[in-house]
Amino acid sequence: MNVSDTELLIRSRTDPEAIGTLYDRHAPAVHSYLARRAGRHAAADLLSEVFVVAVQVRRRVRPHTSGSALPWLYGIAHNVVRTHLRSTTPRRTAADTDGVDWDAVDARVDAAAVAQELQMALSKLSDIERDLLLLVAWEQLTVTEAAAVLGITPTAARSRLHRARTHAAAALASITTGELT
């Protein structure tokens, strides 16, 4: 019988081995998330850290209404990446502050020129706008799930996602027309 993520999260409060089943289910998705934000080299170590934290905080977890443990795991991963980027890169340039693995962008986007334009457009977004846009577009989370990851309300997430899409589109338009702002 296939046990749901919600049941595993509840069971993990008294049985930490239930996190192992969640690891088996979700480690590839969380690893991809980490690799896109911190690079492939750091992703394996960060993945371990995500699940160590998951075991440590498992007694406080509240299952998400979607029934998936991914919003919770992405929330932990988001915090782990932020801490990692702060500790490994003391001073970054504007293009580097996003924590996105641009090799992954290149793999998804066919033309190198478009990847550069996308990188420039995303670098113009605020951290929360960029994270929200990437969680919804790349990680395929719902707006409600992405809101849970970022610790904001679904209403705020919808508003910020709309703003992020508008800002990204405007930035792309200004880049492609040569009117850099």
Rank of each mutant, 00 (worst) to 15 (best):
V3N: 02
S4F: 02
S4W: 11
T6N: 09
L8A: 05
L9H: 12
T14G: 14
A18C: 13
I19H: 08
T21I: 12
Y23P: 01
D24K: 02
R25K: 12
V30L: 07
V30I: 15
S32N: 07
A35D: 03
A35K: 05
A42I: 07
V50R: 00
F51E: 07
F51S: 06
V52M: 13
R58W: 03
R59E: 15
T65F: 01
A69Q: 09
P71E: 12
L73N: 07
Y74P: 13
G75D: 01
A77Y: 07
V80C: 04
V80F: 01
V81K: 05
T83E: 11
L85R: 15
R86G: 02
R86N: 04
D96V: 00
G99R: 01
V100M: 14
D106E: 14
A107L: 12
A112C: 01
A112Q: 14
V114I: 13
A115H: 08
E117F: 00
Q119V: 08
M120H: 13
M120K: 09
L122M: 14
L125D: 13
D127H: 10
D131Q: 07
L133Y: 15
L134A: 07
L141V: 04
T144H: 10
A147R: 10
V149M: 06
L150G: 04
L150W: 03
G151E: 06
A156R: 02
R158Q: 13
R158C: 09
A164P: 11
A164Q: 05
T166F: 00
H167S: 13
A171F: 04
A171S: 15
A171Q: 10
I175G: 04
T177W: 05
L180I: 08
